[in-house]
């Protein structure tokens, strides 16, 4: 069986062609780097995504703080992750990389701030 995928590891977006026999990948072609193969195997068995979104931030320079999951979460959990983060509010100042939630939506994966957000009164 042939299966086509687009690698989403980087902007190159390599078109991958997988040959699958009895559920096992015999060959992967079309990738321009090693990541394409890793992605194809992962996507076929346990697709996962890094989630980027925002959480509320009290008295920050902006009212929203951008965050991400520190690693990819199973694709089926993306909605749960986002729903849990809808409830979260942090207080400024926040530092880049600061942990917002240790274990989001029981994935075992942490959510971190993707920028430093100063207090609203602090300007450069």
């Amino acid at each position: 069986m042939k299966k086509e995928l687009i690698c989403i590891s980087c902007p190159m977006s390599c078109p991958l062609e997988l040959t699958i026999v009895n559920g096992e990948i015999l060959s992967i072609t079309g990738n321009r780097c090693k990541n394409g193969e890793i992605y194809a195997r992962q996507e076929l068995t346990h697709p996962q995504r890094v989630v980027t979104t925002t959480v509320a931030c009290r008295s920050g320079l902006w009212p929203r703080l951008p965050v991400k999951t520190i690693a990819a979460v199973p694709k089926d959990y993306v909605t749960n992750v986002v729903t849990e983060l809808h409830e979260v509010e942090v207080e400024a100042p926040v530092l880049l990389g600061q942990i917002i939630i240790e274990n989001v939506a029981n994935t075992g994966i942490a959510v971190i701030a993707t920028r430093s957000l100063p207090h609203e009164t602090v300007k450069e």
Partner: peptide
Amino acid sequence: ETGGILNQCIHSGFGLHYFKEELTGPEYAE
């Protein structure tokens, strides 16, 4: 603040060439 449009591009996909790792817009700007 500096950082330009990167500050609102909270998704990842930045930095693979320049930093050899995947960053979000705000992380790249920072």
